[in-house]
Amino acid sequence: MSDEIKVKVSHMTKKFGDLLVLNDISFDVKTGEFLCVVGPTGCGKTTFLNCLTKLKAYELTGGEILINGEPVDLQKHNIAYIFQEYSSFPWATVEENIAYGLKVKKRPPEEIKERVEEMLQLVGLTEYRSYYPGQLSASMLQRVSIARAFAVQPELLLMDEPYGQMDNSLRYKLEDELIQLWQRTGTTVIFITHNIEEAVYLSQRILVLTNKPTSIKKEIDNNLPRPRDVTDPAFNQLRDEVTDLIKWW
C-alpha cells in the first residue's frame, strides 16, 4: 500500500427527494489498499458505490468523489465492479465472459488471449472454459465474475457483498483466493460486507458506517499479519471491537 491517494471522497452527500441517505462522508483510499466497508443493510453502501461509478445516473447531491485527483470517468479510469448478484453473461462461455472487459477496452487480441489464459488458471476454471454459466455451480459463477474483473487489471476494484449468498467453507476459500489475487496485482479494493469476520479477515482498514442518514462511525486500521487466523486472539479482539461498534447501530 503506497501513500498515494487513489480515491478521495469529500463531503459526499446523497439525497433521494427528501430522504437523506449519505450524510457528509469523507475519507481517502490509498493506492493498493484493501478497504472494507461495514454497515447495517440498507445504510447506503450500495448507493455509495453507485454514486462512485455513476451507475443508474446517480449524481451526488453534494460533495465529490475523485479518482487519481479527477472526477470519475468510466472510460478513462479502469474500474471493475463485482455485484452481489451473479452477473456473468448467460449467452457467453466462461472464456468469453472473462474476455469481455478487455474487449470493451479494445485491447489487442493477443493480449486478451494471454490475459484470459492467465485468469482461467488463477481461478482454476481452465477445464471449464467452454462452459456456459447455466452449467456452472455457484462458486464457479462468482469466480467467473472475479476473473472477468481482474482480467482488465483494474486500478480500482469494487465488490458489493460478493460472497453474501454462500456457505462458510466456500466463502473462506474464495476469500483466500481474493487475497492472493490482490497481493499479486496490487489493485485498490473497496469491499462491502455486513459480515464482520470477513471484514476483519480481508481488510487493511475498516470503515464502520452508521444507519441512515449514514455517516462514518469509525475508521479502524487492521494491521494483523497475513495469513490471518480466525482463532488468533488478536483477530477476535479486533472482531469484538467492530461488533461492539455495530451493536449500537
Binding site: L55, L74, Y81, E85, S87, Y100, K105, R148
Partner: peptide
Amino acid sequence: TKPVHLWVAQTFGASRKE
C-alpha cells in the same frame, strides 16, 4: 435485459451502443 448485466458493461466503460 438484466440491469446488472448493463452495469457490468457500463463499469467497463462501454458506450450505449456497445
